[in-house]
Amino acid sequence: MAVWNLTAPLRQADVEKLQSGDIVFLSGTIYTARDAAHKRLDALLDAGEPLPFEPKGAVIYYSGPTPPPPGCPIGSAGPTTSYRMDAYAPRLYRLGVRGTIGKGRRHADVLAAIRETGGVYFGATGGAGALLSRCIRKAEVLAFEDLGPEAIRKLWVEAFPLLVINDGGGGELYACPDISAALAAQGTL
């Protein structure tokens, strides 16, 4: 388990050394997008139009922050569950997106796209939105402002704490639930 300090947008050389279980402190610029924004990104691509950000090397953060209170660049901003973006993620990885940040297991199609493109899927701690917001120095709405919390925001982050869940080599960090042990459990503690 290694610890890396990386800067987004990510270069191929940054990502190919990553292994599931590694800790990454990410700095640089990343983009928030969740359900409704992904649907619109997909529609833009269908129409042959450009995305509101350069996908090459980009890191997408599945997050819908709370409004910024006075004096803060952003409100609470932790990860949302990733599987809801699985229908869109393979297309984005194939366009050059190098990393996504969320929580929860990804669909096999996403894992295939991560392996194929040498990408990465990071996990951030869910329910730690106040803490994580402290690593966000600046935020601005980049697209789809009408979506409110689901708008695409450009974030300037500093040492944002991440865990590599899925690496380009097929590594997986999430524990496989031991259903048979749970079903066989007898009595109470």
Binding site: P65, T66, G75, A77, T80, G127, G129, L131
Partner: peptide, 24 residues
């Protein structure tokens, strides 16, 4: 480490008034 971050988070939320989680 997860529990450490969660504790730091609830302390920070109480001190700053930021919501505990972005999903309010």
């Amino acid at each position: 480490e997860v529990f450490r971050q969660l504790k730091e988070n609830w302390i920070l939320a109480a001190e700053t008034g930021l919501p505990l989680c972005q999903d309010t």
